[in-house]
Amino acid sequence: MTWALDHLSEILTRAGQHAWLAGLPLVLGLVIALPLGWLASRTSWLRASLLTTTGLLYTIPSLALFILLPSILGTKILDPVNVIVAMTIYTVALLTRTVADGLSSVDPSTRQAAIAMGYGGFARFRAVDLPLAVPVIAAGLRVAAVSNVSIVSVASLIGISQLGYFLTDGYARSFPTEVWVGIIACLLLALVFDLVIQVVSRALTPWTRAVAA
């Protein structure tokens, strides 16, 4: 506890870096996954091929991806961009399926009604399908957020600064307190992400509370 207090500013700095490395890919991933998921929800052969491809991307272990990306992107191995790109890939892999599922989960009668009212193509996606899919997408985003926070810490093995540093450093110095601080800080950060997503999701979907009440 005293160790954590003594190193509070360092913890906060690294937590900020960690949040950036895990959070930015979440946003980028969502932006990429929305059109992909939309495509997947519309045509079954696209669904099969898109979900298989993104699923295969997810199988690549994170440490391997961190190391392989520099030679593909032409970046330096210590460049944080590698981590951002890797985490974006994982997020897209996770969210494409979720977005597709979420869009498919919209009540067909609601969708029929929207079509009957003259909503077409993109307008219907934006005004009807997407808002109704928010709860499912948010659930996927929560899984992705927790996953990202955990995976980013692995990047400390290749020397990229974030909360994972306390894990590797603590282990190297045989200093368990530091490892525990690292773990707890990661957990807290994951919790914060989770809460933020829940709050935003609730704010976007006031009707779900109306049903519950």
Binding site: T98, A139, G140
Partner: peptide
């Protein structure tokens, strides 16, 4: 569709591990 619907609640998607979501049941 059933598992995605349960995903709305507090329970994480059953196939969604933190590290790895398998491509799950192949299409």
């Amino acid at each position: 569709s059933r598992s995605s619907r349960t995903g709305e609640g507090s329970r994480p998607d059953p196939s969604g591990a933190t590290r790895s979501t398998s491509p799950a049941s192949t299409a």
